[in-house]
Design a binder for these strands. Structure first.
Length: 745
RNA sequence: GGGCGGUUAGCUCAGUUGGUAGAGCAUUCGAUUUACACUCGAAAUGUCACAGGUUCGAGCCCUGUACCGCCCACCA
């Protein structure tokens, strides 16, 4: 008996760079990433359960890095698995404007090439430049995203600054304002003197710094500071009420003393904020430039006076130092105090944390400013009738398990964040972003989407980028319109993202969704780890240890790149990635390819692949007992893989199928088959060939979510697509593309 | 200062309700035409950080210690 030939493509090793673009085109043409198409073609039942993920939108102006690649791989696995299982499956793509980052990038570029600042250009011109930059660079990230094999529904693409999302942001602001959740007030905020804008608490990064720590004689007290330049206005001495060292001083008592610019009268304040164990236990306060001092001042209704302006220049109160920049003034002030004999001691090398703007900004200077805030401690009524504060609601969402965070340990971190949450400052003084729908006329303020009249001026500020991001799960689905998409796909099934943005984003989406829709934005939060280099270091340009996903895709294929990010990556744990790892999985792709070749070369024994799944129904060929056992084994693997995916253990799922395919199917089952095919027993040959076909199919399906390209490429070469054994959910038999074939469980 | 995670083979890591220590990569030796050299087979390597405790039995549970990493925090 002559062996039938496998299709000729199998005579060469699998070439990912050759086949992947072809598969991408097949998928794109099919439209199967769009659930509406799947329903139309009878692949998905119209009343099937929905499964949806909204892609955390990458920065429009960025390029794809391994973190994105990991995110795309994980989400695509979940999506492809559920699509194959028959769910009405939607994965919504989008990009983010990343306001501050984008604006400062464009500003920097302009300054480099033209020596012009944004003020030279003006607001309109800068916006034009930014739009042009965004337009140019967004195709880059979109194309790179596609190369990973991400089965996103591009017909639903959203951009945070597009018309619909913009409208959603305006609507959200107005509704929250009307509900009394958004207010405008003078409060102490984080001011970035470099970027000239406020920054939210979460965007602050503490950087360790070494500075001299000065001890001053402040009347009878010893006070310390690293910032002498803020001390001009200090006229209150604060100490703990229980501090026995200062028992003789009474709250409110006045003391005359000599200070930087002459004699002043200081007032004693007893407050528990003073730490008895730190230094002398006594401190002076600068309420206008320190959050804690501001709070003390408010508690005791003390005077609050600004010392430093928005650019870091000393004000009138500094006397002879007025007009100086704080950096330059500091040594001069120290010198003067020293000359007056007011310095008692200097500790060089005092290590402390300095607040900086994590978005490439400067050192934060707390300032009192009139800004827009979201009140997190104010009780309001939610759409579902509940009345509570935002904080309480955010806690409840997770506490009640409406939203489950995985790995579970992150729930604690989430609670901790909420408990320490203060009112959220949402206005920014940068130009690129969503405008605040507030209108001013003299002292009057009106909040509305449209201008109230010709003589009203719009608030020049823009919104914190996370305000719009908070709406993302539902603004992408059409909110505020009550669209079919919104009803079908919200709350979304899973929010999958890196653990580093749990606070920035996840918590804010819960806030926005519960308030504006009365429901959580997602049922599950799955947090993946960070991708690091082979030695566990962060990937960075300066270390030169960046592994570029696109390079890996070119060299080893997207399938290999995906697997390298999945296998061995336990939920929430960082992944250490090396090129060797990616290479190893390329070998695996080729292995699968050759398994298919071997099976196809022997298919003549069973009268073509179509036999396999039909055999039971038609009764044409009876599998031998031993072969039935082998098929059952593959089916058990399918069960194990499914169970692991269901609990987000993609690493274990991938590991299971990997080892079954290589160590069991290829190494043992195929090897054992060789003598059978050489043998004289025709029934045994036929039965074995049929079993191998069956196992191959199961394997391809199980592998497909993890390595969609090579499996789809093999599927395409199957001489005859296997017909489906049953039609639960789909009318067209097993599909033309593996992407929508029925999951084998 | 508070919290979280980690410590298992040379390297990177699994080990899911406690039951004789595992994988990949790397190393060494060997093989080869009914798939695959992007292959196959075999070998070697471990006081599971340390010290106690619970248990018939602990990598796993409890207590403590050490080191590494991360997050949070307004010590002036």
């Amino acid at each position: 008996m002559e062996p039938s030939k496998a299709p000729e493509v199998f005579l060469k090793p699998y070439d990912a760079s050759d086949r992947e673009p072809e598969m991408l085109e097949l998928w794109e043409k099919s439209g199967y990433a769009n659930p509406d198409v799947c329903i139309e073609k009878g692949i998905t039942k119209p009343d099937a359960e929905a499964y949806s993920i909204v892609l955390p939108p990458p920065n429009v102006t960025g390029t794809l890095h391994m973190g994105h690649a990991a995110m795309l791989a994980i989400e695509d696995i979940l999506i492809r698995y559920h699509r194959m299982c028959g769910y009405k499956t939607l994965w919504v793509p989008g990009t983010d404007s990343a306001a501050i980052a984008t604006q400062s990038k464009v500003e920097t570029d302009i300054y480099k090439s033209e020596k012009k600042t944004r003020h030279d250009l003006g607001r309109e011109e800068l916006m034009r430049r930014i739009d042009a930059f965004v337009e140019e660079s967004k195709t880059t990230i979109i194309n790179q995203t596609k190369k990973m094999g991400s089965s996103l529904d591009w017909s639903r693409y959203a951009y945070t600054m597009d018309e619909k999302r913009y409208a959603a942001v305006m609507e959200a602001f107005v509704r929250m304002y009307d509900a009394g959740l958004i207010y405008r007030g003078d409060r102490i905020v984080n001011w970035d003197p470099k970027l000239q804008t406020t920054v939210s608490d979460d965007e602050i990064e503490y950087v360790e710094q070494k500075d001299p720590f000065y001890h001053f004689k402040y009347g009878p007290f010893d006070i310390g500071t690293v910032r002498p330049e803020t001390k001009f206005g200090d006229k209150y001495v604060v100490m703990h009420p229980d501090d026995e060292r200062y028992a003789e001083y009474k709250h409110g008592q006045k003391i005359d003393l000599e200070w930087i610019n002459g004699p002043i009268t200081a007032t004693i304040i007893k407050d528990e904020a003073a730490d008895m164990s730190f230094g002398s236990g006594a401190m002076t306060i600068t309420p206008a430039h320190s959050t804690i001092d501001f709070e003390i001042a408010q508690r005791h209704k003390l005077d609050i006076e600004r010392v430093i302006d928005d650019r870091g220049i000393l004000l009138d109160i500094a006397g002879e130092f007025k007009g100086q920049h704080i950096k330059k003034a500091r040594p001069m002030i120290v010198e003067k105090l020293r000359a007056k004999g007011l310095i008692s001691k200097v500790d060089e090398g005092y290590v402390h944390n300095v607040a900086t703007n994590s978005r490439g900004g400067g050192i934060i200077e707390p300032q009192i400013k009139r800004q827009w805030f979201i009140a997190v401690n104010k009780a309001v009524q939610f759409p579902d009738g509940k009345t509570m504060t935002l904080k309480e609601r955010m806690r409840e969402a997770v506490d009640s398990k409406q939203t489950e965070i995985m790995p579970e340990r992150f729930e604690k971190i989430y609670y901790h964040w909420i408990d320490n949450l203060r009112d959220w400052c949402i206005s920014r003084q940068i130009w690129f972003g969503h405008r605040i729908p507030a209108w001013f006329k003299g002292d009057e303020v009106k909040v509305s989407v449209e201008s109230p009249g010709p003589d009203w001026e719009q608030d020049p500020d823009t919104l914190d980028t996370w305000f719009s991001s908070g709406l993302w799960t539902f603004s992408t689905l059409g909110w505020p319109e009550e669209t079919t998409d919104l009803k079908t796909y919200h709350p979304t099934s899973v929010l999958e993202t890196g653990y580093d943005i749990l606070f920035f984003w996840v918590a804010r989406m819960i806030l926005m969704s519960t308030f504006l829709r009365g429901e959580v934005p997602f049922k599950n939060v799955y947090l993946h780890g960070l991708v690091r280099d082979g030695q566990g270091r962060k990937m960075s340009k300066s270390l030169g240890n960046i592994i570029d996903p696109l390079t890996m895709i070119e060299k080893y294929g997207a399938d290999a790149t995906r697997l390298s990010l999945i296998i061995g990556a336990a939920p929430g744990n960082d992944v250490k990635l090396s090129e060797d790892r990616v290479r190893g999985y390329k070998h695996f792709a080729n292995k699968v390819w050759n398994i298919a070749r071997f099976v196809l070369e022997n298919q003549h024994e069973s009268g073509a692949l179509q036999f396999t799944l039909q055999s039971k129904a038609s009764g044409k060929v009876e599998l031998l007992e031993s072969d039935r056992t082998l098929v059952a084994e593959a089916q058990n693997v399918a069960k194990a893989v499914s169970e692991n995916i269901d609990i987000f253990r993609l690493d274990l799922a991938a590991d299971t199928i990997y080892h079954f395919v290589w160590d069991r199917f290829a190494a043992e089952i195929l090897e054992e088959s060789k003598p059978i095919f050489k043998g004289e027993d025709a029934a045994a040959r036929q039965s074995r060939a049929a079993a191998l076909c069956e196992i191959l199919q199961i394997s391809l399906k199980l592998l497909h979510p993890f390595m969609p390209f090579v499996t789809e490429a093999i599927w395409k070469e199957l001489p005859q697509k296997p017909a489906r054994p049953d039609d639960s959910g789909r009318s067209g038999g097993d599909a033309d593309l593996l992407m929508v074939a029925k999951w084998p469980v």
